[in-house]
């Protein structure tokens, strides 16, 4: 009898807890789904061939597109990757393969702190370092984006290298292969998918950054005209367009938002699909 009562109580608690979890899930899902719904329903009508091929119209002008913003965003990300990917990968290698050094755990800690620094602060740093000297420029913006990328690429590289079993390294050593060659030609090869994942995730992160863009380069609506000049940026444009009183710019803002949303989704889904394949490999 007694036991039955205890059991009933437990079942009740279990049910209550399930309901709480479902509620939390709903609170979480409703905004996400409404954001996606709103962006798709308002962004989709803005998309047409002109949207991708025509430059940004002047305020109040009809038609046009965001072609120079696409160009500018691609250039910014390419430049950021040029600095961020090699530095991130090399740092990740250092943190994973030279664990025996005392300084490594300190650097790992710094890297994690760095990862959490608000992007506006990184932007301001880049502003002081570069924009104040050569002016608002794509160089300053890309540098700040690179600084945001580095800790992400570093952490993922480090984690992917750690997943390569120790006996792989030992097998290479026992072939008389020196450590640096083992790391670059054998261990890195085994971790490659994970590292690519990290790179894609970090691009997904910086593609949506607007704060550091605003302080290092500002709003600009023309084509690329040199590294010491600004370029147009999709994420920042959403902010500027959406705040403007011009109907056409607001339309472009929704269109841009949809394009970014799809890009970020893809950059997050592709690595996940790759991860699935990777798990099979090490079973």
């Amino acid at each position: 009898m007694q036991l039955n009562k205890v059991l009933k109580k437990k079942i009740l608690i279990d049910k209550a807890f399930t309901i709480i979890l479902i509620c939390a899930m709903i609170i979480y899902l409703v905004p996400i789904i409404s954001i996606i719904y709103e962006t798709v329903s308002r962004g989709l009508p803005a998309l047409n061939l002109d949207f991708f091929t025509k430059p940004i119209p002047t305020a109040g002008e009809e038609g046009g597109g965001i072609a120079n913003a696409i160009q500018g965003t691609v250039i910014s990300i390419a430049l950021a990757s040029l600095i961020g990917i090699p530095v991130g990968i090399l740092s990740g290698i250092f943190l994973s393969e030279y664990r025996e050094l005392k300084i490594t755990s300190f650097i790992r800690f710094i890297n994690e702190v760095f990862h959490g620094i608000p992007s506006i602060i990184i932007g301001l740093f880049s502003f002081v370092l570069i924009s104040k000297r050569i002016g608002f420029s794509v160089l300053a913006a890309s540098f700040s984006l690179a600084l945001i990328m580095i800790p992400i690429v570093t952490i993922v590289t480090q984690e992917s290298l750690k997943m390569v079993p120790a006996t792989i390294r030992e097998a290479a050593f026992s072939l008389g292969i020196p450590k640096w060659k083992t790391t670059i030609f054998i261990v890195l090869r085994g971790a490659w998918q994970g590292i690519v994942t990290g790179i894609l995730l970090s691009i997904g992160r910086i593609i949506g950054e607007s704060a550091p863009i605003l302080v290092t380069m500002g709003f600009y609506r023309w084509w690329f005209s040199g590294l010491d000049r600004p370029v147009s940026n999709m994420a920042l444009n959403i902010f500027i367009f959406a705040m403007s009183p011009f109907q056409n710019w607001v339309r472009l803002a929704w269109g841009t938002a949809l394009v970014l949303l799809v890009l970020v989704l893809l950059l997050n889904i592709i690595p996940r699909l790759m991860m699935l394949r990777r798990e099979v490999r090490y079973e």
């Binding site: 072939l175 008389g176 020196p178 085994g190």
Partner: peptide
């Protein structure tokens, strides 16, 4: 040690072919 290991090969408990190779 690298030169020593060239003369002494090793086979491990679990087969460990190099991944992605």
């Amino acid at each position: 040690p690298t030169l020593i290991r060239k003369k002494i090969g090793m086979v491990f408990q679990k087969p460990n072919p190099f991944p992605m190779m």
